[in-house]
Nucleic acid binder design. Structure first.
Length: 422
RNA sequence: GGAGAGGUGGCCGAGUGGUCUAAGGCGCACGCCUGGAGAGCGUGUAUCCCUCAAAAGGGGAUCAAGGGUUCGAAUCCCUUUCUCUCCGCCA
């Protein structure tokens, strides 16, 4: 969430910049300002009363010790009123705090000044593109047919055992998955990331920390018995490692990489464009996370962008990088690059990675801070990106590399798969 | 899952209702001392909120978390949670 002091001092700026995200903030910002003022007013009264009663309690103690019981009794009688009053104020305070917080979490992050205006994906800005669209041989087919032909991914089996969107990977299909994961992890470790294996289920606090809750509640699978959430991305457990943590300036930058399965309900988004591997309820992803000094977060964003581009380049896939426009930018992000690979048989661009700078939006909610050189405690900036999500990369690899004699495995992967044709 | 013992500052650890404004130690920072280092000596060493133009100062909150008893709670009571030991189950 946004920092309250920033909203307090830059109301107009907040409203204007959220306008770029097509978010009408006028009313909300006003309500926040009111709740904030009220909260401070109540706290002042409460603190004053508590100061008085603390003073009286100390005096009573001294009176008892010196045997002046009558005087102590008189003073005690006086405290009764303060007690009632402070209880009232305490309740009002937490109520107002709760209201203020409920309002604050409704405000999206401010977009970076370079974010283009726009309402949807068509207004995203293509900032980089490489590779040629492959010329497919006459019998070429989309990946949902290829996986059947070579019997490497089985959706029917997934339907039987679980349901739609939970496929089985078999034989070379399973090995291809393993190879991609290993390649992605190794690349990140080479780039200085610490490899971490996170839990796949998290508690509600973690969901709030990274912003999945409350706004994307319906997108996560819930284990109701324990009130756990299945992670939609490794970003959630990894970033939450640092919830309520104060790092030192020397700890920065923190660079973590994690492979995990990801679980998404994708409620309401099922349709014709999501056949095969294009959209799944369970999929695999390698995620990179950085926690950096606020002054260096855009540098880190570019570094991550270069890293992800390097992976796609190594896989020899044609891809482009889109800078998201205001309307397409997520609730929590200040600046996002989407990576899209070209899937030749579908003749479509498929999003395989999203690299974002959240600035202090996540860290404010999570209380992720660091002690700077000047001795002050400040909010760190957080960033993350997929490096990469597997299913659509697999879809593109299968479609783009198909030949009459089978599917070619890119050279970098063959080291891991130990086969070069499917 | 059952039984028991616990959770105190960056760490160890004292503290069973009133200067706890949390002893003492370790660590860390700075200063003195030293040719230099160490030892020694001294000083400092959390977070959040309010007040203040700012700084200083002042006030409030925090001893796992939440609630309660009391004029007053680290200390007493309740709930939750986590850790450890033993038993059970188990990849």
């Amino acid at each position: 969430m946004l920092e309250l002091t920033y909203i307090r001092e830059h109301k107009q700026d907040v409203i204007r910049r959220l306008g770029i995200k097509n978010f009408k903030a006028v009313h909300l910002v006003d309500e926040i300002a009111q709740a904030d003022a009220e909260r401070r007013r109540i706290q002042k009264s409460l603190d004053d009363i508590l100061a008085e009663s603390n003073q009286a309690a100390r005096e009573i103690g001294i009176l008892y010790k010196s045997g002046r019981v009558d005087e102590a009794g008189e003073l005690k009688a006086k405290t009764a009123e303060w007690k009632v009053r402070s209880k009232e104020l305490g309740e009002k305070l937490s109520e107002t705090e709760q209201r203020l917080n409920d309002l604050l979490v409704q405000l999206p992050n401010l977009p970076h000044p370079s974010v283009p205006k726009g309402f949807s994906a068509e207004h995203n800005e293509n900032v980089y593109q490489e590779g040629n669209f492959p010329q497919l041989y006459p019998g070429a087919m989309p990946h949902w047919d290829l996986i059947r032909k070579y019997d490497i991914i089985d959706f029917e089996l997934g339907n039987k055992v679980t349901g739609a969107g939970f496929p089985f990977y078999k034989g070379k299909g399973a090995k291809l998955q393993r190879a991609l994961i290993a390649f992605f992890l190794d690349s990140a470790v080479k780039a200085g990331y610490l490899e971490v294996q996170p839990p796949l289920l998290v508690n509600a606090d973690s969901g709030y920390g990274t912003g999945q809750l409350p706004d994307k509640d319906g997108q996560m699978y819930v284990v109701t018995e324990e009130n756990f959430y299945l992670i939609p991305t490794a970003e959630v457990p990894i970033t939450n490692i640092y919830r309520n943590v104060i790092l030192t300036a020397n700890d920065l930058p923190v660079k973590n990489v994690a492979y995990s399965s990801c679980f998404r309900r994708e409620a309401g988004s099922w349709g014709k464009d999501v056949r095969g591997l294009n959209r799944l309820h369970q999929f695999d992803k390698v995620e990179i996370v950085q926690i950096v000094h606020p002054e260096r977060s855009y540098e880190a964003l570019e570094e991550m962008r270069t890293h992800v581009a390097g992976l796609l380049h190594a896989l020899e896939l044609p891809f482009r990088i889109m800078k998201l426009c205001g309307g397409d930018l997520s609730f929590t992000s200040a600046l996002t690059y989407d990576f899209e690979v070209y899937s030749a048989a579908q003749e479509r661009w498929l999003e395989v990675s999203s690299v974002s700078n959240f600035e202090s939006f996540q860290s404010n909610r999570m209380k992720l801070r660091f002690k700077d050189q000047d001795g002050k405690t400040k909010l760190a900036h957080t960033l993350n990106g997929s490096a990469l999500a597997l299913p659509r990369v697999v879809a593109a690899l299968l479609e783009n590399n198909q030949t009459a004699d089978g599917i070619k495995v890119p050279e970098v992967l063959a080291e891991y798969t130990r086969f070069d044709m499917i």
